[in-house]
Nucleic acid binder design. Structure first.
Lengths: 280, 280
DNA sequence: CCATCTAAAATGTATGGACAATTGAAGTCT
DNA sequence: AGACTTCAATTGTCCATACATTTTAGATGG
């Protein structure tokens, strides 16, 4: 049940480094890098070398205590490192399952709230121009990723910079009929629709997919946005997935290309990247 | 030094839930949700309520032991939860610093390798059309975010789907002169330039910024891409930041709008999201 | 006044023990 | 065969204790 390794396995961690000065309690294996790290490195190596293939379980904690001659606390600390790296999954009553051989993400983009995905200025306002119930035709179904014939409530409007300020974009927000009544509630406020839906209907946003495409502005939209008809636009589609993976809102906004760009950033490591250094 | 709270602070965690059947050792405060979680929740509430403002230190572990009447191990476990959430930063010798009042990322996009940010098919090829050394004029400087007059090596080419396949995009890759010789090495291969630079010059990619804008294709590019001149394009600029934050490569690729969109996805939580449930 | 030493405070590392809760398989009964 | 019980294995939670390492502030001394 333990993958391979049975007795010929590995050796306890040793690291004849430098003598510690104080001379602790008894043996304590003095070394600059902590025991639990040495153990986690050892296990990590084992995982990468295939001694513990993905899908199998690591030896149990009691087992590791014998092998590494360390306390359970230390063993658990080592396993925690692997768990934090996303390499193993620990399950009470079952064991420690090897999930992957590589630390999960090399680059991450993090946002605290979906609104940071918008990056509209706080002073922007949404001015509702129309809302109606529609049935998706083939073209719209393709855009929304739904079936032709599906029903949506479409809320159209303009996002502007301040009450009478410059128009930022034209927005079509498609909401499932169940949540359609949200249209009545957004009275020229600046709060994003998904947020009001989440609050009003106790929906929880599990996933957001963003798609960017370029296009040309229709005559109508161009006029409202105050640019020349036929000028290029950056179109941002956002798909909001709620509980159970159901897409409850799709928002499509068209920005005049001349004054809009969409920027985001990825940073190496994740979190602090301070915790482990382990090779590279 | 401890923000506020001095003596009027908070009370030990209590939760008269259900009686445990076995009857453990002595008191052990039987409850369905673990003590360390109760403590971390309590501390979390304190942070959110402003009892421990951002920038101040939480009470020390010994202090918390008294307040919550728990062992140090349990206290540390609770603090670890907060640390994993990115709310506090623990520093040996200093204390536990409150970093933020909200759990860091609500939505994360992760990629294992920068190449997943491209999402070009594997079969795509880069055909080099020209490379030359240039000096950034004002317009280019604005695009690249550098000073006018800065020198770059510009590598221009076409990314196609297969040897004689459809053109995907026109690409201008700007590389700092130091790494300019990379142009000689990319002989029609499919490997991204940043990857070859990282390998050849032992550069390490610390950060990638991506900017998307819409525009219109110039006559020259439209012809090469086989579309009508003046048709809209999606322009993707990628800024690669290496060691020390230096931008060593900027790649600008223009895709015909008709057949290209840029999609990415954010998922709630990070990692397993299995570890804590704590409210919402 | 500045450098240096010292000590206190804080978190990090480690060992020991005990009991709880979960899982899965083996065994038992109908 | 199927439902149920029992039990061993395994991880989770918690306690008590000790020493190590780092940081900061205060005392000391030139």
């Amino acid at each position: 049940m333990y993958g391979q390794l049975k007795s010929g396995g590995f050796r306890p961690v040793m690291q004849a480094d430098q003598a510690k000065k104080g001379g602790g309690k008894d043996s304590q294996a003095g070394s600059r890098i902590p025991l639990y790290r040495q153990i986690s490195d050892n296990l990590l190596a084992g995982i990468r070398e295939g001694k513990f293939p993905v899908g199998t379980f690591l030896p149990g904690e009691l087992d590791l205590i014998d092998r590494f001659e360390a306390s359970r606390h230390t063993i658990r600390e080592a396993l925690r490192v692997l768990e934090d790296m996303g390499l193993v999954k620990r399950q009470r009553g079952r064991g420690t399952l090897v999930l992957s051989t590589e630390a999960s993400p090399a680059f991450v983009q993090m946002v605290r709230s979906p609104s940071e995905l918008f990056s509209y200025p706080d002073s922007s306002l949404f001015r509702l121009l129309s809302d109606d119930r529609i049935e998706a035709d083939k073209a719209l179904a393709r855009e929304l990723g739904c079936q032709a014939g599906d029903e949506w409530v479409r809320i159209s409007g303009l996002r502007t910079l301040g009450p009478e300020g410059l128009p930022i974009c034209w927005a079509d927000v498609y909401v499932i009929p169940e949540y359609g009544s949200i249209a009545q509630r957004l009275g020229g406020g600046s709060r994003p629709v998904y947020e009001m839906i989440a609050e009003t209907f106790k929906e929880s946003i599990e996933n957001i997919t963003i798609r960017l495409t370029a296009g040309v502005l229709s005559e109508q939209k161009a006029e409202v946005l105050g640019v020349e008809a036929g000028s290029p636009s950056l179109s941002v589609s956002r798909f909001y997935q709620g509980r159970g993976g159901r897409i409850f809102e799709v928002s499509i906004s068209e920005h005049p290309a001349s004054n809009f760009s969409y920027t985001f950033e990825f940073t190496r490591g994740w979190q602090t990247a301070d915790h482990w250094s382990w090779s590279n």
